[in-house]
Write a protein that binds this DNA or RNA. Structure first.
Length: 329
DNA sequence: AAAACATGCAAAG
DNA sequence: TTTGCCTGTTTTC
């Protein structure tokens, strides 16, 4: 579900609330019992995100690798440092997020862009997924009751993180982690920027595969998913079927810089803001009038926001691809 | 109330 | 190539 920005935000939660503490690791569901036993009680050293993969390092050199896949999610509870962009979700602590959407759009008081600032520590329950992000007040019990299928539970003395429905959750050696990292393309937030850009450019220019497929290929570039793909191609006025080697180098570099920018915005705000070129007023109006906040994603059959042409929906590699045949060529 | 669907990936066949 | 993940939201009956 989450694209790269969410995973970076989750890693940040672990950095703030778990790194430097001994962690009680268990698997209420049982499917991670063996792995949990390997790292139970060890101190967490480091939390790191690369694309959609997250890595947690423990004393002794073992790593926990997690990939959320389509509908995995982390729930944080207890006394955790709450990111203001999350805290603003409900306006006030102790309310459930009624809309289940990202409330930064709300005009009410503290629910504004201005609320982005330093995190604060609070007793809270935070769900880190795209659909539901917000606080609830039903987290008074300690430890929190296990709800549903909890694959892994990580606890310090005062904080708890529950993992549900991941595609991958495994304890791995340094070598195994390096093997995973080796097949991942560059992530704008990891490593040397210039080197990352060159890796991306050569990976794209080398291939005859459609750019729409290459952007989703995690060995070409890390962290881009179906939403960012569609939006980036539109922002670049690029036909998704253009073979990588036929995309002008300048355009490939533009794609890289656009991804770097969108990812940074996503990590800061917790949202996939791909219409950042709009003025704040335009953007608020767009958000308020309909539920869609994108140029083309999820807009099949609707008129293109720029030229009015119907947005096309097609299947590419078993994923839905949205694009404007007039603007993108 | 029930069914369909989703911002992905890995493992199984 | 197909299935599992087994959640949360949206759409349909």
């Amino acid at each position: 579900m989450p694209e790269g920005h969410s995973v970076h935000r989750i890693a940040r939660q672990f950095e703030r609330n778990f790194v430097g503490h001994p962690i009680a690791v268990s698997s209420p569901q049982g499917r991670f019992a063996e792995g949990a036993a390997e790292i139970d009680g060890l101190e967490m050293r480091r939390a790191m995100a690369v694309g959609k993969q997250m890595f947690l390092e423990f004393d002794g050199g073992a790593w926990l690798r997690v990939h959320l896949g389509l509908y995995g999610a982390w729930d944080f509870a207890g006394e955790i440092l709450v990111d203001p962009t999350i805290a603003s979700a409900n306006g006030r602590m102790g309310q459930t997020n009624q809309r289940g959407t990202d409330p930064i759009y709300d005009d009410a008081g503290e629910n504004s862009l201005a609320s982005i600032g330093a995190p604060r520590r609070a007793r809270a329950h935070v769900r880190m997924s795209e659909q539901t992000r917000g606080l609830s007040d039903d987290g008074d019990e300690w430890p929190p009751p296990v709800v549903g299928q909890v694959r892994a539970r990580l606890m310090t003395a005062v904080t708890c993180a529950d993992l549900r429905g991941p595609t991958a959750c495994a304890v791995e050696s340094v070598e195994q982690v390096e093997a995973v990292l080796d097949r991942l393309g560059p992530d704008p937030l990891v490593g040397d920027p210039a080197e990352n850009e060159e890796r991306f450019v050569s990976a794209v220019r080398r291939r005859g595969v459609a750019i729409g497929q290459l952007l989703m290929d995690q060995s070409v570039v890390s962290g881009i998913g179906n939403v960012y793909r569609a939006e980036m191609l539109f922002r670049a006025n690029l036909d998704p079927h253009t073979p990588g080697r036929l995309v002008p180098t300048d355009t490939v570099r533009q794609l890289w810089h656009d991804w770097s920018r969108l990812l940074a915005i996503g990590v800061d705000t917790g949202q996939m803001m791909t219409m950042d070129d709009l003025s704040v007023d335009e953007w608020r109006a767009a958000m308020a009038s309909r539920d869609d906040r994108h140029w083309v994603y999820h807009r099949a059959g609707l008129p293109c926001r720029v030229c009015g042409t119907e947005i096309v929906l097609e299947e590419m590699q078993a994923r839905k691809l949205y694009w404007c045949p007039t603007c993108q060529r």
